[in-house]
């Protein structure tokens, strides 16, 4: 299709404006976390003091978030990969139903999910007070992403036939899973893992309901700092959050691009 230069220039302008609209607040916020006094502006000088203070105040929440994300990842791997395999082997009404049920937590608001968890298990004191309580919420919320990501790859490589091939050569179900299913599901497992970690680190709704003062996570701490600290510290906290989450997002982007390139080949 022939595109006139004028149309192209207009399209470019609109795109750049939209991008700027999104990026400017982020940059402003980051800058605020680095300036000595936000109200006096950059003229007051740049500093890393606020970031250091954030670390002093909130290091435990940041570490807790990392532990929580890795724990969520471990659980979604252990449950999600075998489950995806089981569903890919027997496509049918039953497996579609299971998929729908597992996906439900994505569709209902995190607050409602959290309330349901508190109503059901909140009575168990030790559980309610531990980080495990939040972990369960995060697993419920992120599992469908792992499941779907792995299932898509398994369907694309026709894992059922591959498994039949392995079985015909004498491989037991366990050997088939470890030697054929998992290696061929790897792109889906990686993409799912990045997704799970990113979602877990950034999750606020559900976590805010489930947390106790002793089980604050990074986004909950963020809310706390917005509510009770000076603006510069809150902004520095945003900066810390960006530093943690942006590499993950870039990795997800790159993996998506790689897979698209492969399927196009």
């Amino acid at each position: 299709m022939q595109r006139s230069p004028l149309v192209f220039a207009l399209q470019l302008l609109v795109t750049l404006l939209a991008a700027a609209f999104l990026v400017v607040p982020a940059l402003t916020s980051i800058l605020a976390g680095l300036t000595v006094n936000y109200f006096q502006g950059v003229r007051s000088g740049l500093t890393l003091d606020w970031v250091a203070q954030v670390w002093g105040l909130y290091a435990p929440t940041i570490l807790r978030s990392i532990v929580l994300a890795l724990g969520t990842l471990a659980v979604t791997l252990v449950i999600g990969v075998p489950a995806a395999w089981a569903l890919a082997r027997k496509p049918g009404r039953m497996s579609r139903l299971v998929e729908e049920v597992v996906t439900l937590p994505v569709a209902i608001p995190g607050l409602a999910l959290a309330l349901a968890l508190i109503l059901a298990y909140g009575g168990i004191r030790e559980f309610r007070a531990s980080i495990l309580f939040i972990l369960v919420g995060h697993v419920l919320y992120t599992l469908p992403f792992m499941l779907r990501s792995v299932m898509a790859v398994l369907a694309a490589v026709d894992v059922r036939t591959l498994e039949e091939g392995a079985a015909s050569l004498g491989a037991s179900p366990w050997q088939r899973f470890i030697q054929v299913v998992v290696p061929n599901a790897r792109p889906g497992i990686l993409a799912g893992a990045l997704m799970v970690v990113t979602l877990s680190i950034g999750e606020f709704n559900l976590t805010w309901m489930l947390h106790t003062p002793l089980t604050q996570t990074l986004p909950v701490g963020l809310a706390d700092s917005y509510a009770s600290m000076r603006l510069e510290i809150a902004s520095a906290y945003t900066l810390v959050f960006f530093i943690m989450i942006v590499p993950l997002l870039i990795a997800i982007q790159m993996m998506g691009g790689e897979r698209a390139a492969k399927t196009r080949k």
Binding site: S168, L169, G170, N184
Partner: peptide, 30 residues
């Protein structure tokens, strides 16, 4: 897996995660 049959599938069902020789050696590996 207990019948000791060799099977050639219409789609070949070769393992993409293994080289040619690893594919052929797979039955011996298990």
């Amino acid at each position: 897996e207990k019948r000791n049959v060799g099977m050639v599938f219409q789609s070949y069902a070769l393992f993409p995660n293994m080289s040619v020789v690893e594919n052929v050696a797979y039955g011996l590996r298990v």
